[in-house]
């Protein structure tokens, strides 16, 4: 039997989570949780709705050092935010691929990024933008880099009695470009077969975030700087670097296909990201 609880403070939420001994689940957008409830793949004793908590970080705060995203910021709000659109184009592109308009009106960035799905659309972009996350427990708060956060499918550093309360994105250095590319089975709303985000800085340093090609999202960098005049060199570098991908075959795609596609998408994302370095803004 599931109960519903809408605490008004973080402390109350954490106490409630702890009291359930692992049986509770936090709820923000509910776009994953309710699917699990319907199929009885998740049968929490308590659903803790975080949307009425007064002392959580605000949905989005823009500072000189970057942005801070609280647990209740929706994908729709994220993708519409002018500063996010200007500075984090890969993240905007990724957020806009999450479900439909109605899903994006509910789904939160924190929920999408932090529930441990290896195919979560926003994670590769967050990795490229060097996100870190804050985890609150009754013992206090700790901050970890996002790329350390994932342990395996649906397993993260966030314990059952803890909450992710914030995602911090540092301000990208001047001249940093980013882009997100994703492959799906149809053009409309779909889950990712493979997704890749790329970031390229002014000096050509390339960072990649990879989704759906392993048990957890991956972040990697290329050794050699990007050189627009040497795409064959880029292809060779990617071929080698992307050996780290360990995709499985499943209903959305075979291992072989994912291996090939992560390379194609990575190249495309890098070229798009590199193109954005001058303007630093999303193409219309």
């Amino acid at each position: 039997m599931t109960r519903y609880y809408r605490p008004s403070s973080t402390a109350d939420a954490l106490s409630a989570l702890a009291a359930e001994g692992g049986g509770a689940r936090a709820l923000v957008g509910g776009t994953d949780l309710l699917v699990g409830l319907r199929h009885h793949t998740i049968e929490p004793t308590l659903v803790v709705d975080l949307k009425a908590i007064a002392d959580l970080p605000e949905p989005i705060a823009v500072g000189d050092g970057g942005i801070r995203v609280g647990p209740t910021l929706t994908m729709g709000e994220l993708a519409a935010h002018p500063v996010v659109r200007r500075r984090y184009p890969a993240l905007v592109e990724a957020a806009l691929t999450v479900g439909s308009v109605a899903i994006r009106n509910r789904a939160s960035l924190v929920g999408n990024a932090c529930n441990g799905s290896p195919a979560a659309d926003t994670v590769p972009a967050l990795l490229v933008h060097d996100a870190s996350i804050a985890i609150a427990s009754r013992a206090g708060e700790r901050t970890v880099p996002l790329h350390d956060f994932f342990l395996g499918p649906r397993r993260t550093l966030c314990g059952p009695d803890e909450l992710v309360t914030r995602i911090d994105l540092p301000r990208p250095p001047d001249g940093f470009g980013s882009a997100f590319r994703r492959l799906t089975r149809r053009r409309g709303v779909d889950l990712a077969t493979v997704s890749v985000a790329a970031g390229v800085d002014r000096d050509g340093r390339v960072v990649l975030g990879l989704g759906a090609v392993g048990p957890r999202p991956l972040r990697t960098e290329l050794d050699a700087p990007f050189d627009a005049a040497d795409v064959p060199g880029l292809v060779r570098a990617l071929d080698e670097r992307l050996e780290i991908a360990t995709p499985i075959s499943d209903i959305r795609g075979s291992r072989e296909y994912r291996h090939a596609m992560v390379r194609v998408l990575a190249r495309r994302a890098i070229l798009a990201a590199a193109d954005r370095r001058t303007s630093g803004e999303m193409a219309a």
Partner: peptide, 16 residues
């Protein structure tokens, strides 16, 4: 049926 339901059985959408 492995793709039982709307999440993994794909039918055309507006964008298709």
């Amino acid at each position: 049926i492995r793709n039982l339901g709307a999440l993994d059985y794909r039918i055309p959408t507006f964008n298709d």
